[in-house]
């Protein structure tokens, strides 16, 4: 399940927008301009089923997203979707992994408190006995230079 964001969860001044998400979902997003820096030395790891529903998260995922594990398991991965991310980036992600190939890109993720964090994300299909059974996504600390390039590029992709 994916719920609209609640003002009481948000830290700081926020803006509001309604995002159309994959699978015909829509969600009211409340977002701020507060960045949480990516911690050194950590990886954020999650797995989803074939439909993009979260089945596993590690502790770094919980800490950086601000959600509890119970809120994340069973939720669509688009719970992290930030309105500044162009839909074309996610179309490219799904088009790539659906052909069985790894995808890599720089992503601005949304936190439960309305803030954001940048990651370098790699998504890989989990192939078991020849069948894709889900996807693993691993995020690491991005280069600030690459993030600055994305901050300029992404608004041009809408």
């Amino acid at each position: 399940m994916l719920h609209d964001m609640k003002p009481e969860d948000i830290v700081g001044d926020f803006q509001e927008v309604t995002l159309a998400l994959y699978g015909g979902l829509s969600r009211k997003i409340l977002y701020t301009d507060i960045e949480t820096p990516y911690p050194d030395g950590k990886l954020i790891v999650s797995t989803t089923d074939k439909e993009g529903v979260i089945t596993h998260v590690n502790q770094s995922f919980i800490e950086m997203s601000g959600f509890g594990e119970e809120e994340l398991i069973g939720a669509p991965h688009s719970i992290l979707r930030h309105p500044d991310m162009p839909p074309a980036a996610f179309k490219d992600l799904w088009d790539t992994v659906n052909t069985g190939v790894k995808w890599q890109g720089f992503v601005k993720n949304l936190r439960k408190d309305g803030g954001y964090y940048w990651v370098k994300a790699t998504v890989i299909p989990n192939v078991r006995e020849g069948e894709v059974v889900g996807y693993t996504s691993v995020r690491r600390k991005p280069s600030r230079t690459k993030v600055e390039e994305c901050i300029k590029l992404y608004p041009t992709l809408f």
Binding site: V45, T47, K102, T122, V123, I124, N126, T136, S137, R140
Partner: peptide, 13 residues
């Protein structure tokens, strides 16, 4: 083991 192999795979890119 499969999970670790997938994870290593994402890190070698």
């Amino acid at each position: 083991m499969e999970f670790m192999i997938d994870l290593m795979d994402t890190l070698t890119m």
